[in-house]
């Protein structure tokens, strides 16, 4: 059997066959691995799994490109937010600095500014990574949205919403930042089951997911310690989780940084009909995992419900995340529709 001959034959009818794999190089990498650990007899089976990865998507659930483009939209939202607030004109790769950005930075400690710039770098890199991943998968990434599609005050375009001072008051900036990052963590978790048929993409998505969680932890520390703090993690969380949160989500965190706008970020999601059996979207105060109430089952630990809720972050389904994210688009925008 000549594997390369087979690929060549497929290429005649499907010119994108190589793109359906993650990349041409990746196919050869797979083949190298097979040579080392598989007998010739096992090769056909292994090849079957390769082709399943390339052609195996046949459900009404979101496709891999759908999920990647959904994630890319969220990353644009986050990247533009940090870009507008800290450096650049909003778009990816622009690094000009305005007087307003200098002013906002001046209201925070150097350590916190550096932390926010690292987060900004990561979010811009996430946009670039997902754009490349979609192209390598043979799919079309969404075009970069106009900056004017967004209103980070939550005013739907009037620039005077509930977060009116988001780019001049560091407390408001950090509150919105925490909300975006906590949303991102839940969104990737909700999208992951639909990426399970492609190992490389699933891995990449969840490796971005844990970076969003690192960001969220830092932003939460900055909120409880204040924008001028130099070592925010050293400060204890207060009694009000909306203003002084732990680095992890405790219960529903009282509805988050601005409950009237952010409660849904910590609430339950509405499971779409295509959701696989066994996957649910409870609120963040959930203490039931794998169908069993851990708090009562592990009652001997004598822990409060908050401890069980903190130990597990919960997923949100795609439609619920889109509704949350549309808080920050202008009226008439279809970006998160």
């Amino acid at each position: 059997m000549n594997f390369f001959q087979i690929l060549s034959e497929i290429e005649k009818t499907d010119p994108e066959v190589f793109e359906r794999f993650d990349s041409r190089r990746r196919v050869f990498k797979h083949m190298t691995g097979f040579g080392k650990k598989m007998t010739a007899a096992a090769l056909p089976l292994a090849m079957g799994s390769i082709f399943n990865k390339a052609y195996g998507q046949t459900t009404s659930a979101p496709s891999i490109p759908d999920v990647l483009n959904f994630a890319l939209k969220l990353e644009y939202l986050e990247a533009y937010f940090y870009n507008i607030g800290l450096q650049g004109d909003g778009t990816i790769g622009n690094n000009t600095t305005s007087a307003a950005q200098t002013s906002l930075r001046g209201k925070m400690s150097a350590q916190n500014v550096a932390a926010l710039l690292k987060i900004r770098t990561d979010e811009n890199n996430h946009v670039n990574f997902l754009t490349d991943a979609l192209k390598k998968a043979g799919a079309t990434p969404i075009t970069a949205p106009m900056v004017s599609q967004f209103d980070f005050t939550g005013g739907k375009g009037n620039g005077n919403g509930p977060f009116a001072d988001v780019f001049s008051n560091p407390a408001t900036f950090l509150a919105v930042a925490q909300s975006l990052e906590d949303t991102g963590v839940r969104a990737y978790k909700g999208g992951a089951p639909y990426l399970a048929s492609n190992d490389d993409i699933l891995t990449a998505a969840l490796n971005i997911h844990s970076v969003e969680a690192r960001h969220a932890a830092r932003l939460r520390a900055m909120r409880r310690a204040g924008a001028m703090s130099t070592a925010p993690a050293t400060v204890a969380a207060g009694t009000d989780p909306t203003t002084s949160p732990k680095s992890w989500i405790s219960g529903q965190d009282g509805g988050g940084a601005s409950p009237a706008q952010t409660a849904a970020i910590y609430g339950a999601g509405n499971a779409p009909a295509y959701t696989p059996a066994g996957i649910t979207f409870p609120a963040e105060d959930n203490v039931t995992q794998g169908g069993v109430n851990l708090q009562s089952t592990l009652a001997s630990l004598n822990f409060p419900a908050s401890a069980f809720s903190e130990a597990f972050d919960e997923p949100l389904p795609v439609p619920t995340v889109l509704t949350i994210a549309s808080t920050f688009t202008v009226t008439g925008s279809t970006f998160f529709a």
Binding site: I119, S210, A213, R214, H215, A216, R218, A233, T234, W248
Partner: peptide
């Protein structure tokens, strides 16, 4: 569900050791 909480833990202890090293 555990992985992201572990990332929060990691960011927390890293920031305690060196502020700003969370990521």
């Amino acid at each position: 569900k555990i992985a992201s909480v572990k990332a929060r833990h990691a960011a927390y202890v890293r920031d305690l050791e060196v502020s700003g090293s969370f990521a």
